[in-house]
Amino acid sequence: MEPRWLDDHEQAAWRRLVTLMTALPAALDGQLQRESGLTHFEYWVLSALSEAPDRTLRMGCLAGSANGSLSRLSHVAGRLERRGLLRRRPDPGDGRVTLATLTDAGRDAVVAAAPGHVDAVRRLVFDALTPEQTRQLLEIGDRVVRSVETERSP
């Protein structure tokens, strides 16, 4: 069966999307590391915990919230734990599950990092878009995420 090759317009859009998927995270990661000493993934982990009830999530749920694998999260959580930003413990209701809890120091770190991060997001993304383009970006993102999730589903 012959592949469904991309036409010139699709090829240009795809290349731009790939550039976006690599350049934007690198720029956000650099800003966070320079100003807060956190990687973008660490920031997402701390941010997800800061928004969770009791600042606590199961590690599996936290991995999903941060868009990372459980293995990657475990490595990063160990690093954050050594820095006193989160702590892990067995779930008292299910000893097979590990809970991650944001410490007060972790909350302070994410609160301190948030203004610089949101400023970078605004400068790099939203200042370049019209309100209509922002609406379209949300719609496009939703459609692509649904497509990816459908592909992952058994």
Rank of each mutant, 00 (worst) to 15 (best):
E2F: 12
P3E: 15
R4C: 10
L6Y: 07
L6N: 12
D7I: 05
E10P: 04
Q11D: 12
Q11G: 14
A12W: 01
A13T: 14
R15A: 15
R16T: 11
L17H: 13
L20W: 02
L20M: 06
M21S: 10
T22D: 00
P25H: 06
P25A: 08
P25D: 00
L28V: 07
D29C: 07
Q31S: 11
Q33C: 07
E35V: 09
S36E: 09
E42L: 04
E42P: 03
W44A: 12
S50F: 02
E51A: 14
R58T: 05
C61A: 12
C61W: 08
L62W: 05
A63T: 03
A66L: 04
A66W: 00
L70K: 11
S71I: 11
S71A: 10
H75K: 10
V76D: 09
L80Q: 02
E81K: 12
E81Y: 03
R83F: 03
L86R: 01
R87T: 07
R88V: 08
R89G: 13
D91V: 09
R96Y: 02
T98W: 11
A100P: 06
L102E: 01
T103K: 02
R107M: 13
D108Q: 12
V110Y: 01
V111H: 11
A113E: 01
A114T: 15
G116M: 05
H117T: 02
H117W: 11
V121C: 07
V121P: 00
R123S: 14
A128G: 07
A128F: 08
R143V: 10
V144G: 04
V144K: 01
V144N: 06
S147C: 03
V148H: 06
E149Q: 15
R152Y: 07
P154D: 04
P154F: 00
